[in-house]
Design a protein around this nucleic acid. Structure first.
Length: 605
DNA sequence: ATAGGGTTAG
């Protein structure tokens, strides 16, 4: 029996419990009666008919066509098999008409058309794709009531939906139920779904524990399962651990594939370990596992982000030589690379060359270019591109709006930004954490402190979607209007809402306090920081030193600097030159000599 | 069931 003590037990899971209690009854039912499989009776259809329906499906291009086919099917006698309905639903899912699938399934049931586990799973998948995994449980109810046996795919679908809606505990609870109550045989896909969900929601270690559990039991982890964890470790920047697991799977004879290698390549690139990247690429090619468009795009992106666009272009040429066709994502990376170097015109030419080589720019392409123009304060160009989006049949997304909003605030066009903010909401995008951050900062930067603060309070009331950045910005605002108590209370509140102050929090607060000449309180904060295990950055120390200098306590400033440097904290150039200046000023030459080893480059940040 | 891209703070 597997041990799952790491899964937190749940309480108050109303509909889950309901469905699962039905589940127990249904399982018993199955074991004693096969009669309930009468639903499975397949109407006999001539080969000719089958072909006719299938052919029409190939020409279904919109919802209307699909609806016509559905009505045609239900009017046909004998009624086509459930497999034909499932095919139609698949087509509808590909067109993203998820709710239509749900309504037509309801229609089918009303008409008394039989259904099977396969089509019920399709319906569950539609609920999940609609972000309504909880409705998936009512479909489970249909299974149990009708006596159709669920299968493991049903449950992996449901589990995936729960993870995607961030209902991690529910997903784990369901998984645990499946394991302990043996509702169905779990396969690698089910384990893979759970592990992927855990990894994507930041629980890599839990996924790793599950991998270890799998190794003890059955089924054994396969390439996919290992690759999921390898990828997550890479994303967590634990590339060493990822390589250990990678070597372990190789030792056990589980062959890594191009995905496993690509994850590792990406992890190494992001940590600048280029020599290891080269070795790994050699290794995979030696094993005839060839880099594909994903692998190459990762390399292109990594070079671009480091400002090495020329190298990225070489990779691009290499991939074309090797017969891997770059796609929009590859070109977008190159465009971003040029934008980061403020070469927006070159980026624009890449965009045009993309169109010329028949690769359709997507919304990312537009967002990257728009951001490039905004950063150059070329708002007219940015707006022009924004208008082009809908002309090209694409849809602006929240990132598009957020980017332009920031651009407008940056050039001081506050009213434009406000009306654009409304435009965004009219287009059906509710502000997210990014837009909130941009609006807050934009208002503050342009002196609309009251507006910023009211926005902050409104956001602060809903606590689901928040982060430290919002509080840092809000904090800066409170200092700006000298609401020190508010600022202090924010600082104390952070932990209670599960946020941790970061370097910027301390800087904003220290800076605010020093401006108010509350240098002692700032120093106190520095101690608090240490207690919390965070080290002050150069900027933080500099702020306090400046604060002390402002309050004419040069000696105290020096004492503090001595302490900072003496304890091995990295003191940056600015701090050090300040210190040297001061020491010379008050004739502390000998101390300066002692300081020299500390002024070693290793202490630079 | 697994891999690549864009937006926020000092």
């Amino acid at each position: 029996m597997l041990s799952h003590s790491w899964i937190k037990p749940l309480c108050n899971r109303g509909n889950l419990l309901f469905a699962l209690s039905l589940g127990r009854r249904a399982t018993m039912f199955h074991s004693c009666s096969a009669l309930h499989f009468s639903f499975q009776e397949k109407p006999s259809i001539s080969r000719k008919r089958k072909v006719a329906v299938f052919r029409e499906l190939r020409h279904v291009n919109n919802l209307n066509d699909a609806v016509c086919v559905f009505h045609q099917m239900v009017r046909t006698q004998p009624i086509p098999s459930v497999i034909e309905f499932a095919k139609l639903f698949r087509v509808m899912i590909n067109m993203k008409h998820y709710s239509a699938v749900v309504s037509y399934f309801t229609e089918m049931r009303k008409l008394g058309i039989s259904f099977d586990d396969y089509i019920l799973t399709i319906v569950i998948n539609c609920f999940c794709l609609l972000d309504r995994a909880e409705h998936g449980f009512s479909v489970l109810g249909i299974f149990f009531k009708s006596g159709v046996q669920c299968n493991v795919v049903t449950f992996s679908t449901l589990t995936r939906g729960l993870f995607e809606q961030n209902k991690i505990q529910d997903a784990m609870w369901l998984f645990q139920k499946l394991v302990t109550e043996k509702i169905c045989e779990l396969d690698e896909v089910m384990y893979g779904t759970v592990m992927n969900g855990l990894c994507k929601k930041g629980h890599t270690q839990t996924a790793l524990s599950l991998l270890r559990i799998m190794e003890q039991g059955d089924p054994k982890p396969n390439t996919v399962v290992y690759s999921i964890v390898v990828d997550a470790l890479c994303k967590d920047k634990m590339v060493g651990a990822a390589f250990n697991l990678f070597n372990e799977m190789k030792r056990k004879g589980i062959t890594p594939n191009v995905l496993t290698y690509s994850s590792l390549v990406d992890g190494l690139c992001k940590l600048d370990q280029w020599e290891k990247v080269r070795l790994l690429l050699d290794e995979m090619m030696f094993l005839h596992i060839f880099p594909n468009v994903h692998t190459f795009s990762m390399l292109v992106d990594a070079f671009c982000k480091k400002g090495m666009v020329e190298d990225a272009v070489q990779v691009l040429q290499l991939m074309i030589q090797r017969g891997q066709r770059p796609d929009a994502i590859t070109y977008n990376a190159i465009m971003e690379g040029y934008c980061l170097r403020a070469e927006i015109d070159v980026a624009r030419r890449v965009f045009d060359s993309m169109v010329a080589s028949d690769i359709k720019p997507d919304i990312f392409s537009y967002n990257i270019l728009i951001n490039g123009y905004c950063k150059q304060k070329k708002l007219d160009e940015a707006m022009h591109l924004y208008c082009e989006i809908s002309q090209k049949g694409l849809k602006s997304d929240i990132v598009t709006y957020c980017t332009i909003l920031q651009g407008l605030f940056e050039v001081g066009r506050v009213e434009c930004a406000e009306s654009f903010f409304s435009e965004m909401q009219n287009a059906g995008h509710s502000p997210d954490i990014y837009t909130c951050g941009v609006m807050l900062h934009g208002y503050l930067k342009n002196g609309h402190v009251e507006k910023a603060m009211s926005l902050f309070h409104r956001w602060d009331k809903q606590k689901e979607d928040t982060n430290i950045l919002i509080y840092n910005t809000g904090n800066g605002g409170f200092f700006k209007i000298q609401k020190l108590d508010k600022a202090r209370s924010i600082f104390d509140k952070l932990y209670s809402i599960g946020l941790h102050p970061d370097a910027i929090t301390y800087n904003v607060t220290v800076n605010g306090l020093c401006i108010e000449s509350l240098v002692d309180e700032a120093k106190e904060l520095l101690r608090k920081m240490e207690d919390n295990g965070s080290f002050p950055e150069n900027a933080t120390s500099n702020l306090i030193v400046h604060g002390l200098l402002k309050s004419n306590t040069a000696n105290e400033a020096i004492a503090l600097l001595k302490e900072i440097v003496g304890r091995g904290f990295p003191a940056g150039k600015a701090t050090m030159s300040l210190l040297i200046e001061l020491l010379l000023l008050i004739g502390e030459g000998p101390f300066l000599v002692n300081m020299i080893p500390e002024f070693h480059p290793r202490n630079e940040k």
